[in-house]
Design a protein around this nucleic acid. Sequence first.
DNA 1: GTCTATAGCCAGATAGAC
DNA 2: GTCTATCTGGCTATAGAC
Lengths: 204, 204
Amino acid sequence: MAKSKNKNTEAQILNAAKQIFQTKGMDGARMQEIADKAGINKALLHYYYRNKQLLFEAVFKNAFSLLAPQLSAVLNDDSSIENKIKNFTSNYVSFIIKHPYLPNFIIQELNRNPEFILKLKENKDFPNLEKFKIQLTKDVSDGIIKPISAEQLFINILALNIFPFVAKPLIMAFTNTDNKSYNRLMENRKTEVSNFIINSIKHT
Amino acid sequence: MAKSKNKNTEAQILNAAKQIFQTKGMDGARMQEIADKAGINKALLHYYYRNKQLLFEAVFKNAFSLLAPQLSAVLNDDSSIENKIKNFTSNYVSFIIKHPYLPNFIIQELNRNPEFILKLKENKDFPNLEKFKIQLTKDVSDGIIKPISAEQLFINILALNIFPFVAKPLIMAFTNTDNKSYNRLMENRKTEVSNFIINSIKHT
DNA sequence: GTCTATAGCCAGATAGAC
DNA sequence: GTCTATCTGGCTATAGAC
């Protein structure tokens, strides 16, 4: 009789596929390389995931499902705008250390295939600005925060946090740093970035 | 007798290659597609550029040589820090409209191949922070600008300007905008971003 | 469920005519 | 300098044994 699907093998494949797809992208990845990394044969990849495209999509959805809660947390928890910014910027660096290739992977593949996001938006866990917008509008009218739209502030928060990791090779070149001092710069950003944002928007 | 190399054909090829490589990347690009776009035969690509890798490098260097002066301008001109930031943020949007795929292309390919930047750094036009650092240090000690390192400020300027274009599909999804209102958001950033930065760093 | 072997296609590169 | 035709290798995917 046939064994039931081996969850362990399936997980090993997904894990290997993550590593290869996230560093090389859909087009640069090779099924052979994924099989090697998983320690199994190429044919098994097809047995579990049918083809390259489906395996890729499994990896992509998995990656996005890790990133999305990070963002939803900023937008929907109950603390003040100032605390949200502080928490997000300090947590994000720790998140990136665990998943260094993730944001670049998502950005790159969405640019290659922008329709992809439509499927993701159907998910009700997809990050939503509504609550954040209401909170910010209130803070602005209460005179706590200088006038700024929720969209622009949110873009700024994402930009300041995500960009330095996405553009790591560029940043290292411009600031003339090696890996060690680059990491030190990023470590400092845990507090630098939130101060930078709060300085800008808070009424004095 | 053989005609001398036809500059026009060579330029057409480079132009077609730009469009294909910048949207699809090295791995996703097809020589056939480039040939079609240039209106010539695949064999001619090899005649002029020998192979795919060399054609790609020609495109990449060309792209970088467009971006670098934009950055050097912020770093080396003689105006105040405040004016540098204002000029850069308003100019950058116009630059992007002309070359929408350029920053993403550069970032993506540098991540794929980080050693690439070493060659670029040899060029003496490569953006350099020294002058900016001196100017900023002086402004800080004169009490014009709040304490911040040149590296962190420069990273913030790049992040706030470049990221929204690199992550366009993500931003459109999160802010729930179509192309038209996304463009309006970006247009607003011409002034929003410089105000945001200056608010944050300027002593009041 | 896992393997080996191979089909079948596609893309980069070259040969050679004009 | 430009073309058509073709070689060659590599990659996805499947067939079929165990």
